[in-house]
Amino acid sequence: MISKHDIQKLAALSRIKLTSEEEASVAGDMENILGYVQQIQDVSAQHTGTHVRDTNAPHNVLRADEEPHQSGAYTEALLAATPARHGNYVKVKKIL
């Protein structure tokens, strides 16, 4: 069972504000969905092998730590998308 308290906690963790009607409807939807996905508990087999990836699938691909792009090359394009800026800083509310 998913209680109203659980939903409020999940909403807080998800950083989403819900009205109390929405809390009730989300609780109902989640009950249904979790009831459905519960069937994976019926699988008794264990996957014994390691998580085998297809041999041609890439694995732990890393880029050499070299040739950085020119400093500031993308600063303006990225800052232009921010809702609020202060010079070359992203502007946010005081945190502490």
Binding site: I7, L10, A11, S14, I16, K17, L18, E22, M30, L34
Partner: peptide, 18 residues
Amino acid sequence: RRAGFGAESRRRIMLGTY
């Protein structure tokens, strides 16, 4: 996030968090 996400997005975010 309340204003930006529709109901299905909110539902899946919360389900994933769960």
